[in-house]
Design a protein around this nucleic acid. Structure first.
Length: 300
DNA sequence: CTAACTCCCTGATAGC
DNA sequence: TGCTATCAGGGAGTTA
């Protein structure tokens, strides 16, 4: 599941394979929608043009071409890869960028939670997907005073807060658990109850972990890989994520797992003490299962 | 306005 | 072995 480091790695891979001197010969769509509609009608506006630049904003990759940005979001299972021929198409290939008679960049996404869209440059910041994004975590804009300002009057736990893309971008479920473990803060702690020193430490650890993961090529769990099919190795540095029942690296107490607002959350209940005033804001597992069963029954 | 909840999707896996 | 139920989760949309 790509978060900031993984998206950054994929962006660099696309940069390598979409050099500024190579015009885009064609873009092929093999279905009408993924998460949203694919830009079948407007895409002709960029055919024949060359890529000006490729950037990352939050978990989106922005490919600048003529007056447009291609926006690519990998969702849960999105990957880009290079092929020499369309004879190598696979299941769930949805978009193909042709750069050369024998070179295609192909977007594959089994769950189709990703985004591939085309947007005029002038409209980027008006777009709902970009207008409300929070600060980039690896910049000076992500600091204690910003954190305090945004957490003021927020009635949510700290994990939801740091995963909220309107607060700080790029931190997903894996790095949220990891950063909270590193800072020894319970994910259930209400964000307003954090002390200033805890906020300082948390920001420091989020940055440290994202940078370290980036230097290791990201975390390859599930199907994640770079454009060149390279796998990251940061999953080997995970201390708590996916480690339910395994000993805490600090105190050996078994790692605990609980679904918090629909996301599996891993922590050490001994090292990261549950505060007296915890903030769950979630359905119980029982209630969740019941809802799913009910809706499934109703559908069939 | 905020916070909680629903939904989208398919491959992997657990359990029978 | 083959079936079915469950789970994984980012983010937009909806409801309270």
């Amino acid at each position: 599941m790509p978060e900031l480091p993984e998206v950054e790695i994929v962006k660099e891979g696309l940069k390598k394979h979409l050099p500024p001197q190579l015009p885009i010969l064609d873009i092929l769509f093999w279905r009408k929608n993924i998460r949203g509609p694919l830009p079948q009608k407007t895409i002709k506006n960029i055919i024949g043009h060359t890529v000006v630049n490729i950037e990352r904003r939050a978990k989106y990759i922005l490919i600048e071409i003529a007056d447009y940005y291609i926006i690519s979001h990998l969702g849960m299972t999105g990957t880009w890869r290079v092929e020499e021929s369309l004879a190598y198409r696979k299941d769930h290939d949805h978009v193909g960028i042709q750069l050369h008679p024998q070179k295609f960049l192909i977007y594959n996404d089994p769950r189709r939670f990703g985004v591939f869209d085309l947007i005029k440059k002038d409209n980027l910041m008006k777009d709902k997907r970009f207008s409300k994004l929070g600060v980039e975590p690896l910049t000076k804009n992500f600091n204690v005073s910003y954190f305090l300002e945004k957490s003021k009057n927020k009635k949510i736990n700290v994990k939801q807060f740091i995963m909220d893309q309107q607060i700080v971008v790029g931190v997903g479920n894996i790095y949220a658990s990891e950063a909270l473990f590193a800072t020894q803060i319970s994910p259930l702690k209400c964000v307003q109850d954090l002390k200033k020193t805890e906020i300082e430490q948390l920001i420091y650890n989020i940055q440290k972990i994202l940078k370290k993961s980036l230097s290791r090529g990201g975390s390859s769990i599930s199907d994640y890989s770079g454009v060149d099919q390279s796998k990251g190795s940061y999953q080997n540095n995970h201390k708590v994520y996916g480690k339910k029942g395994q000993p805490c690296p600090k105190c050996s107490h078994p790692i605990f797992m609980q679904v918090i607002s629909g996301r599996s959350t891993f922590w050490c209940v001994k090292c990261q003490k549950t505060p007296r005033k915890s903030h769950e804001n979630q359905k119980t597992d029982y209630a969740r299962k019941n809802t799913q069963k009910t809706s499934r029954t109703q559908r069939s």
